[in-house]
Design a binder for these strands. Structure first.
Lengths: 354, 354
DNA sequence: CAGACGCAGTAATACGAATTACGGGCTCCG
DNA sequence: CGGAGCCCGTAATTCGTATTACTGCGTCTG
């Protein structure tokens, strides 16, 4: 019945029941005010035909008029189900799915978006975002202009992960609704913990730039370092071998290294081991967040966990709020859970508060 | 632009460009035969307005006429992204997503289907399957009547996992398109392997009934046992404690146990250990397929791996064939990869061929 | 010079369901 | 007995796009 002319339509049902299409529509979803106008006998006749044929209304035609169809889009700037490695996005989707189910919505995964210039784009010709009532955006980095355009065009959406305000060249745009992880707080908490354990010279290894998540980590590091009055340096880790980087850190007497990515932490541990340094005996290593790429290691890194599932859930909550015009907080930062690993050790005599 | 009256429509574009809606439509997607009718100058004018406004055609209205919209549905009879445990479905989705991306289709996850009587149902009032051009069905067990109805209604679909033919009480229905794992062959291969290693008395533990996957495993077991002429019994494992079951197996001198589920195998290993039996020294254990539920174990079970990702990919391939009227094989069984674990040991003097 | 034909575009219609406006038949009341 | 009011339902319209049929105008041809 789905393809071709043989489709089962309301008109068809009407013909079978000997009534008009309007009547069928009313019987199906007329609210009390309108439905009581149909005689019970007619109503039964229509319902019987519907039961017999198993007719269900075409969601498309319905949406065309109603402007909403209980479908939420999910746009990912990377592959949602990568075959390689542990999947960073899976927990987000888990939360998204659970919440969508709880509010009775279907999920549309935009897998068709073509990859251009390394990343996908929402706004390509023939895109289908408008099929959804609103959508959720996933990705480490999302082009600013796309976000701005979403805001400017009043397309209901929520970003998973904090995003800065976005504006188009024309000046249109504004704040971006998001549900993010509070990287700054989590990183700062780790710094304070290291200080408590006696560390006085520490370094942040990683770009600390680009995606908001990286910026926030570095910001949290910088703030906490200033607050506690210890020495904290930023090592971009670009264009140098890991050994060179380690050289620099050692000669600066750094005792705790905060790695932006888990892979970075793993590589540092490897380099330290190669040089005969023990972790955390000689050097403490901290990993700022869950692994985004596969990394082979048997070390249990100290760091924090991103509340990915909860972020997914709340993103849908916010989206639902937006769609229903509820003005709750549309920018949320969720606390991360600190992970007491084995790569952060005590340092020097002072183990008490700074 | 998405909600409310301010929507950008072809009519709007037409007004701005000073032409008719028809012209806009023709410029946008008139194929050569029709498009050459538009003067280049007019065409440019329309295109400019489209570029400036960023207009994209509403996929809904388009689909209403064209009968297809590059959306494939995914219906799961269990939660797709369960928060607990390893996710059995994840690899299927991985393959599905990859193939969908390769053919330029979006994926619609029917998360809104209400759970009634323990499992979801496709055909509930207000379902949205019809929004998709076709769909993929996932689940260990899928109600026969739902399958039959899909067939009867000519709704293009493919089941992931082998399915028997399905008929409605009315007699409508027929063969069910599917891409399954060849459980029978894989199980038979394991039996032959055990025979090669000297085993002469073996047992199949599990229902061996219900879902096709269970039926096929038992069928493969039974066939291989008959073929090789060894002793093979079926232990349904219901209503008995694991210890009682082990008693029965021991007194029957069973040396190799084929477990339908990994959890079952883990439990058996536990029971054997409790009784002082070594695996595989005293008893060989085989797990027939990947874990569908979380199971804590450090044993590396002998068994086979289901080509889940490939199944997902090929399911979409078949669906695409169906949608385009290509009559390839719509029922496929994919071979499983044998896993050389550590729970199948040699038995007795004869290690050569039977 | 009438009719055929090409050009460049438009009016009309269809898709399937929801909604608004209307209409025929009946009863009740003044 | 005429019209107000109700009952039960239908015709018409709407959503946004694609397609088909058509139209006015100029040009070419027999």
């Amino acid at each position: 019945m789905s393809v071709g002319r043989g489709r089962l339509t309301q008109n068809e049902i009407a013909r079978m029941a000997g009534v008009s299409q309007t009547t069928v529509s009313l019987v199906l979803n007329g609210r009390c005010e309108a439905a009581w106008r149909i005689a019970p006998e007619t109503r039964e006749r229509v319902l019987r035909v519907i039961r017999e044929t198993g007719y269900v209304a075409d969601p498309l035609a319905r949406r065309l008029l109603q402007q909403h169809n209980q479908i939420l889009g999910v746009f990912t700037y990377e592959s949602v189900f990568p075959s390689t490695s542990v999947n960073f996005y899976h927990p987000f989707l888990s939360g998204i799915e659970a919440c969508a189910e709880s509010i009775g919505c279907d999920l549309l995964l935009f897998t068709s978006a073509p990859v251009s210039g390394g990343s996908r784009r929402i706004f390509h010709d023939n895109n289908r975002i408008r099929l959804a009532d609103g959508c959720v955006l996933l990705g480490r980095e999302i082009p600013r202009d796309e976000l701005a355009r979403m805001v400017a065009e009043d397309m209901p959406f929520v970003s998973v992960g904090r995003r800065d305000d976005a504006y188009l060249p024309s000046g249109k745009g504004g704040p971006v609704p998001h549900v993010g992880a509070d990287y700054a707080q989590a990183t700062a908490a780790l710094v304070r913990r290291a200080v408590d354990l006696g560390h006085r010279v520490m370094a942040y290894v990683g770009a600390g730039a680009g995606p908001e998540s990286a910026i926030d980590r570095l910001a949290g590091f910088t703030a906490a370092v200033r607050e506690t009055g210890v020495d904290g340096r930023h090592e971009p880790a670009d264009g140098r071998t890991r050994a060179e980087l380690l050289d620099a850190l050692c000669s600066a007497r750094v005792t705790a290294v905060f790695c932006e990515e888990l892979v970075e932490a793993v590589a540092m541990a490897e380099a330290a081991r190669a040089r005969g340094l023990s972790v955390p005996g000689d050097l403490s290593l901290l990993a700022l967040g869950d692994p985004t790429e596969q990394a082979e290691t048997d070390l249990d890194f100290t760091g924090f966990r991103i509340p990915r599932e909860d972020m997914g859930w709340q993103a849908i909550e916010v989206l639902d709020d937006i769609l229903h015009g509820r003005t709750s907080d549309h920018q949320r930062l969720l606390p991360c859970e600190l992970v007491e690993g084995e790569t952060l050790g005590a340092r020097g005599p002072a183990t008490g508060r700074n």
